[in-house]
Design a protein around this nucleic acid. Sequence first.
DNA 1: TAGATTGTTAATCGATTAACAATC
DNA 2: TAGATTGTTAATCGATTAACAATC
Lengths: 225, 225
Amino acid sequence: MRRLPLYHRFLKTWAESGRLSVSCTDIGAELGLDPTQVRKDLETARIGGRPRIGYVLPEVIDALESFLGWKNVSEAFLVGAGSMGSALIGYRKFEQCGLKIVAAFDADPAKIDSRIHGTQVLPIDRLADLAARMHVLIGIITVPDSQAQTVADVMIAGGIRAIWNFAPVRLRVPDGVIVHNEDLYISLASLSQKLAKAIHLGGRPPANARRRPGRPERTVIHAMP
Amino acid sequence: MRRLPLYHRFLKTWAESGRLSVSCTDIGAELGLDPTQVRKDLETARIGGRPRIGYVLPEVIDALESFLGWKNVSEAFLVGAGSMGSALIGYRKFEQCGLKIVAAFDADPAKIDSRIHGTQVLPIDRLADLAARMHVLIGIITVPDSQAQTVADVMIAGGIRAIWNFAPVRLRVPDGVIVHNEDLYISLASLSQKLAKAIHLGGRPPANARRRPGRPERTVIHAMP
DNA sequence: TAGATTGTTAATCGATTAACAATC
DNA sequence: TAGATTGTTAATCGATTAACAATC
């Protein structure tokens, strides 16, 4: 599920280093995870291995990409050509993960018809019509808080089914529309709380603390089901 | 824990609308959560209410801010004055959540001594020394993948204890250093998988789908413990 | 064959949810 | 008082971890 992209990334570098197969133990050691858990995860992606050998690299990488839906690229519209929007448009590797931002939209007339990293900026009132005609299903919101709900409504009117929301706002959407919140404030809160706890408890870090190549930090990203 | 910032945000708007108290039922209804869970969450922040009345708004907001550590602001250094870095520097509301980005660093000579949203850009080789002298404990990494580990090492050398990492790379750090990964690729993978599943199962959304003011989408952010 | 590794079933753990008494 | 709401304890659920047989 959420760990699969991590596996994929590691397996790519593992493959580049010339290996032909990989075991759950290898993956677990690298990512600081239990090998059994890795096996379970691969199982949910319907990926099987061979006892004693492990998983054949090209096979497992390919299967992961299929399962993650990275084989066919979905087109997305982005609304809000500010600094965050521009940054996302610049993340060209999204395409390798099945997402292509095909157009940006903004309310600011000064930005209309300009290009950001080669992607054209269009007026927001063309969004709904274009989304419907092009069958775009994914929308990315990088506008100020106050406009996020309005933009979401327009997206939904255009038939968009999944919204990646970078505004710190709870969007109200009909059933069947997926909202994925990228809430940096929540993320920040979790970081600073962990830091506060660490400082409160441990004080200074161990003086002889060293990087340990064999044991990376326990992979933490964030959570909220 | 991770839902508390959400409660805080809602309670602020609730207070602005003139109310003096709030019940777990109110919060749960707004955020699509079980009232019992809300109560449990507030309990972990050592916030109590009164039967029949609920929680007194100024009290609970204040207690949340204290618990989240938003009362005293931590200073942070950001490395990588690209588009993502600039976007983060522009998120001025971080200060209300206890984080102030006091300086940016970059390897590009062209960017040195420029200002981004008023924040000065310094050469990266001054980071370790400055961090140590200013007792900066938080570092934000927005550099390309290939440089992330190097930057992390410099930060740690300067005494930084918590790293907010926007590069899709597993950083290797000593014990006692906190790494918080903001991995947009993982987030994207989860979004597109949910979309794929929804389309596969449901096909089109219900034709009469409407926004429902009383029931927002189930609050989902992402996960990985 | 022996040993590493997968596959699978059971045990543990934590978080969520339910139930209900206590209280204003 | 009656009723809404908190506080708290127990039940459920899902995810993680452990144990062990199957297999190459």
